[in-house]
Design a protein around this nucleic acid. Structure first.
Lengths: 225, 225
DNA sequence: CGGATTCTGTGACCCAGTTCACAGACCCGC
DNA sequence: GCGGGTCTGTGAACTGGGTCACAGAATCCG
């Protein structure tokens, strides 16, 4: 049986305790996802939480008009879907596999039972919720108060931080970056061009390499509103 | 001693269970706030949660440049500050008294102790966190995907819903409304003028009366992006 | 290899909302 | 009751970013 070997610091919510992890082990059922497959989307009913075993999934919100704002890419070890855990109701976000992935599903009733038995689980979960709220707050902040270039710089830094390999190449097209940033492909293309000319990044088709992290950091702090 | 008589559905997070309420009763210490007084602001350290006994407080986030986005006004019965509950770190938002108010403060260590004794508290708290996350998600959605008039219409409907009196008069100046909507005073003034001419609302200095809720509802759904 | 598709770069124009600049209107205190 | 704040209304100019429209590069595939 696949093991959650460790809990890497992925995007967010990746700090489950050993106890919680064990719980996941015992009650879980695994699901295999193809690239592009939607695990659940906004409006779905569902009361499970998930842990990522392998692959990577995109976490996004979608407007009624169909516009998408990607918020995070989650990697093995990440836990998600906890809003619906004890607050039944439709899902508020959409989760899509970016590559073939495996997720472990735990029904909230099982978690609930475990919580009643052992309060430590609850403390873990509340802490997890706290971190997620903190993170959502920062997203709101960025969207509201930062200009497009600043948001772009931050997302690039954030997403490339998760990359373990040496020169952090981001495997996203400009269209995908635009969705992360809440802007159009054209706008992203234009600012990337500028940064490329300035030697801050190097862009190729379907990818992008950060050359000068410091400079990007500056871009992220400039351009406030 | 003041009692939390009931838990009215205020802005959000107003559905604490009887048990949790009792906990609040036993461990709390009350604080009196003057109008305009800041209870805590973004960046402060602090690990207490609060319940509102009387008055009303504004919940807002503030950019590094000093721009403010008001998110909610919280009324008696509302619970807030729970991010810091089990996830230590700086506060992510700012809370200000809109009028003379009294809040009850509970140190997170006390709550933590209670949780370990009785898991039901934990379930309540997690549920509370779930609702708050749901709500924050909706805020993010609105800010990102809606035009200014739609946001304005929604905030007016939302804020006036909390009003119990007959013809719901909102006691906010246009400048304050602008902060709620993340726009400038002028822009708000202009769209309010239009709505006033159309008979949808009636505006006076420092306040505003909703005449036609349905029409506002339409405005809220139109103007998507 | 050659055609088709999918990305990337850029320019022209448009529009929502900001900034700036006032002019009234209301209101409160002396 | 009048003078100085604080709100409200509105117009002119500006601007970030969106929309539209292509053209050139990469890549894929039959």
């Amino acid at each position: 049986m696949t093991k959650i070997v460790s809990l890497p610091k992925s995007g967010f919510l990746a700090n489950a305790s050993a106890d919680l992890t064990e719980l996941l082990e015992s009650l879980a059922s695994d699901t295999r996802l193809d690239e592009g497959q939607v695990l659940f989307e906004k409006g779905d009913e569902g009361d499970s939480i998930y842990a990522i075993i392998s692959g990577s999934l995109e976490f996004s919100i979608i407007s009624s008009e169909g516009r998408k704002l990607s918020l995070d890419v989650m990697r093995p070890g990440a836990l998600f879907g906890e809003i619906a855990l004890f607050d039944p109701g439709p899902r508020t976000a959409t989760v899509t596999a970016l590559e073939p992935s495996i997720v472990r599903e735990i029904r909230s009733a099982d978690v609930l039972r475990a919580v009643r038995k052992s309060p430590e689980f609850a403390v873990d979960l509340i802490q997890l919720a706290g971190q997620r709220m903190r993170w959502m707050n920062s997203q709101l902040n960025e969207q509201v108060f930062l200009s497009m270039p600043a948001r772009l710089a931050r997302k690039i830094l954030y997403l490339s931080k998760a990359n373990t390999d040496e020169l952090s190449k981001l495997p996203f097209s400009q269209a995908e970056l635009a969705e992360f940033v809440g802007a159009t492909r054209e706008a992203v293309s234009k600012t990337l061009s500028i940064w490329k000319r300035a030697g801050v990044i190097d862009a190729t088709r379907g990818g992008l390499i950060v050359m000068d992290r410091e400079a990007l950091q500056v871009m992220a702090d400039l351009h406030q509103i």
